[in-house]
Amino acid sequence: MVDQALLACGLVVGPLFTVAYLAEGATRAYYRPLRHPVSSLALGDRGWTQTANFFVAGLLSLAFAQKERLVAVGGLIQRVSVTIAWAWLAVLAVHTLGA
Score class of each variant (00 low, 15 high):
residue 88 W to V: 15
residue 98 G to W: 00
residue 74 G to E: 13
residue 83 T to F: 15
residue 38 V to Y: 14
residue 88 W to Y: 15
residue 72 A to I: 00
residue 37 P to E: 03
residue 12 V to G: 02
residue 64 F to H: 07
residue 43 L to P: 01
residue 3 D to V: 11
residue 97 L to I: 07
residue 31 Y to L: 05
residue 28 R to G: 06
residue 5 A to T: 14
residue 38 V to K: 10
residue 72 A to C: 04
residue 77 I to Y: 01
residue 40 S to F: 07
residue 9 C to D: 04
residue 55 F to E: 02
residue 7 L to F: 12
residue 73 V to P: 12
residue 24 E to I: 14
residue 45 D to M: 15
residue 2 V to C: 07
residue 46 R to L: 09
residue 9 C to T: 02
residue 55 F to A: 12
residue 91 V to N: 09
residue 71 V to W: 06
residue 43 L to N: 08
residue 29 A to T: 14
residue 63 A to S: 14
residue 7 L to Y: 13
residue 77 I to E: 09
residue 87 A to P: 09
residue 89 L to H: 00
residue 38 V to N: 10
residue 29 A to P: 04
residue 62 L to H: 02
residue 58 G to I: 01
residue 44 G to Y: 04
residue 52 A to Q: 06
residue 49 T to W: 10
residue 28 R to Y: 09
residue 75 G to K: 00
residue 99 A to C: 03
residue 3 D to Q: 11
residue 43 L to T: 07
residue 90 A to M: 11
residue 96 T to L: 14
residue 19 V to F: 03
residue 33 P to H: 02
residue 93 A to M: 12
residue 66 Q to V: 14
residue 80 V to N: 04
residue 42 A to G: 07
residue 80 V to E: 06
residue 61 S to A: 11
residue 56 V to D: 01
residue 88 W to P: 03
residue 27 T to A: 13
residue 3 D to N: 13
residue 96 T to M: 10
residue 3 D to F: 03
residue 68 E to D: 08
residue 69 R to S: 05
residue 64 F to R: 04
residue 16 L to C: 00
residue 4 Q to C: 15
residue 47 G to D: 06
residue 13 V to C: 10
residue 39 S to I: 06
residue 8 A to G: 10
residue 44 G to R: 04
residue 4 Q to S: 15
residue 58 G to Q: 02
residue 63 A to M: 14
residue 75 G to A: 01
residue 28 R to K: 14
residue 38 V to E: 14
residue 56 V to I: 06
residue 51 T to I: 11
residue 24 E to N: 09
residue 47 G to Y: 08
residue 84 I to K: 12
residue 45 D to L: 15
residue 78 Q to V: 09
residue 72 A to L: 04
residue 4 Q to V: 15
residue 98 G to Q: 00
residue 42 A to Q: 03
residue 41 L to F: 13
residue 83 T to R: 14
residue 82 V to K: 06
residue 30 Y to P: 08
residue 70 L to V: 05
residue 37 P to K: 07
residue 45 D to F: 12
residue 97 L to D: 08
residue 76 L to Q: 15
residue 79 R to P: 09
residue 52 A to G: 10
residue 40 S to E: 13
residue 41 L to Y: 15
residue 21 Y to R: 05
residue 81 S to P: 13
residue 93 A to G: 15
residue 76 L to T: 15
residue 99 A to S: 03
residue 29 A to G: 04
residue 86 W to I: 08
residue 79 R to K: 13
residue 62 L to W: 05
residue 90 A to K: 00
residue 90 A to Q: 07
residue 16 L to N: 00
residue 15 P to W: 01
residue 47 G to A: 10
residue 19 V to W: 02
residue 66 Q to D: 13
residue 68 E to Y: 11
residue 50 Q to A: 05
residue 98 G to D: 00
residue 71 V to A: 04
residue 7 L to E: 12
residue 89 L to S: 09
residue 80 V to R: 03
residue 31 Y to P: 06
